[in-house]
Design a protein around this nucleic acid. Structure first.
Lengths: 344, 344
DNA sequence: GTGAAAGCGCTAACAC
DNA sequence: GTGTTAGCGCTTTCAC
């Protein structure tokens, strides 16, 4: 009786290669490659043979080898400037990211999260230019984004939110129409008989901040009204509270305020309450973002809903379609809707 | 005069290869490779020559080639089960993720964000097993994480938060000591003379949910008190409000409540106010999470601070150290601190 | 439709 | 210390 060591058979558990699949299916590696990549020019028999072999071996193509040979990575970077990362806790951002991730989950692309260090911007640029990704999504939000708009020359890029830098106005952008949203919000106030309309807006080095003041101004002046007081916050609840405090201290009267984010609005609301001002009786409030802050404020806030998950999935979709070579519009505007609640 | 077409020279602007660097520096490719990878066994002269060549050519190593040859990817996956993604808007999660990203930014590792589809768990598993990453970080939070604990066998994995599945109790885990945190919170209530201590806790299929009830129970019984009413939420503000509503409706008296998250606490607070109950006069509230919700509630909430960014960077650090072959403790507990404010 | 052959750009023994 | 030599596992002409 000759005993053969069984162990050696199972010993080296290396991942199966395309070559192994080819051998098992009785075809060449090229054919396996064709099947894996969905080429039509293969006989049905070969296709099934290969697929069975793949199944049987639990074959998974090696991404590095593929990338090396094909010169494309199947990877998309989501770039978040470090400054922006501070706003990470903002539910708006979180759900944009979630939207991106969810969309990409249904494609062959993999999402790489890049927090762009501001102290070493070169590192990010090198990574992006270094052939590590097929394209990039940039959630840019402040004026210092020139380095990213330049990236556009050498890598397919889509911006989430209008970049501040105007170089290359031919950027691909997915954004909500902030001017329009702010104007609609403000008009809603006016339609409800308000006349001295204040605003608490966002940083003036961010497109969203600028555009929302702009929309407010447009609506106010088109109604023939004088602009009310204006204060600037940074979209956080605390900054909203501070802004409202300053506004009250300044003493200029107002009977309504358009607050550029629900988080700021919730902060402002607290200050109003402290000062014994009733909403909406004494002052109406309208804001942007239909998040928890807007829904659970007392009173619940009338607001402009900008669907953030949708924006996330859309920005991803635009890039993927570009990578597929499809013709895509430069600017995609995500529609907003007015949600009426009790604060106006 | 023979005219030579100049164009051809500039035409193909291919990224410089290691080979080009070698040529320019007058050394072999191996030497360049050694310099790039920081091997010490190279003469200083060679090092500088190579570095100059790299600088001059703006050479960036090709990651795919590197991965293919070296069998490691320099990539770490951050896996977020789809269910968990729902909680994405939770500032706690957002900042754990941010912590991970920030830590990794200072290493050579790249972060890949994986939202694990629950309808097709195989896809995630394949990706993770398929040699696409060197290791994985799993922000797991519900009972259905067996597939991930099994992953552990074939891939270095670190869990953020204790996984529910008990297979392989030798998992690497970074977590806050939820039992302890809850117990401390509850004891604080007791030290302040409260006697009928209720709790609103998290889902009982999540470790954080279970452990926090446990801690509450421990503190209550060790003080010789009867446990007060208990309601379950899902960590969201709305669920906290609902839970409080049920608790009030049930009619069992209580003079304090330990709420397992600040978001739920803020929801519960609103309901208490609706019912004319004063905090802390009529009922004390203590919670976990030192986020905006805790800070800006009225009154501001006494809470247990679990530093989420730290947890994020720590979980990343543990994995990186494992990948470096260092000896790392299986369980790393992030210390929490009690923050006293006005709600007790 | 299919296979053979030639790399993709790098690392890792192994000699020297 | 440095160079030479093989590949890593796949895609992609190019013949057939």
């Amino acid at each position: 009786m000759n005993w053969v060591p069984r162990l050696s058979i199972v010993t080296t558990e290396t991942a199966p290669t395309l070559e192994a699949v080819a051998a098992l299916a009785g075809v060449s590696r090229s054919t396996v490659s064709r099947v894996v990549n969905g080429s039509t020019r293969v006989t049905p028999e070969a296709v099934t043979a290969v697929n069975e072999a793949i199944e049987q071996l639990a074959y998974v193509p090696n991404r590095a080898a593929r990338t090396l040979a094909s010169r494309h990575t199947n990877t998309i970077a989501l770039v978040i400037p470090e400054n922006t990362a501070k706003f990470f806790a903002d539910p708006y951002f979180a759900s944009v990211i979630q939207g991106v991730a969810m969309y990409l989950a249904n494609t062959d692309y993999t999402l790489t999260l890049l927090i762009a260090s501001e102290t070493d911007p070169e590192k990010t640029r090198r990574y992006l230019q270094g052939g590590n990704v097929d394209g990039a999504l940039i959630l840019s939000h402040h004026s210092d984004d020139r380095s990213f708009t330049q990236l556009t020359k050498s890598l397919p890029v889509v911006f989430g939110g209008r970049p501040m830098s105007q170089e290359g106005t031919d950027n691909y952008i997915v954004d909500v129409d902030n001017v329009d949203a702010a104007a609609r919000a403000t008009r809603h106030l006016i339609e409800h008989g308000r006349r001295r309309i204040a605003t608490i807006t966002g940083p003036q080095n961010m497109a969203a901040g600028i555009d929302r003041v702009e929309g407010w101004r447009v609506a106010v002046t088109e109604a023939g009204l004088e602009p009310g007081p204006l204060e600037i916050g940074d979209f956080t609840p605390t900054s909203g509270a501070d802004a409202m405090r300053r506004m009250l201290a300044a003493g200029a009267p107002f009977d309504a305020v358009f607050v550029a984010s629900a988080q700021m609005a919730s902060g402002a609301l607290g200050v109003l309450r402290e000062h014994g001002l009733r909403v909406p009786e004494d002052v109406s409030i309208i804001t942007i973002d239909n998040d928890w802050f807007a829904q659970n404020a007392t009173p619940p806030l009338t607001t402009i809903d900008q669907p953030s998950m949708v924006q996330g999935s859309t920005i991803a979709e635009v890039l993927v379609r570009r990578l597929r070579g499809e013709d895509v519009e430069r600017t995609t505007l995500i529609p907003t809707t007015l949600v009426e609640r009790a604060s106006v």
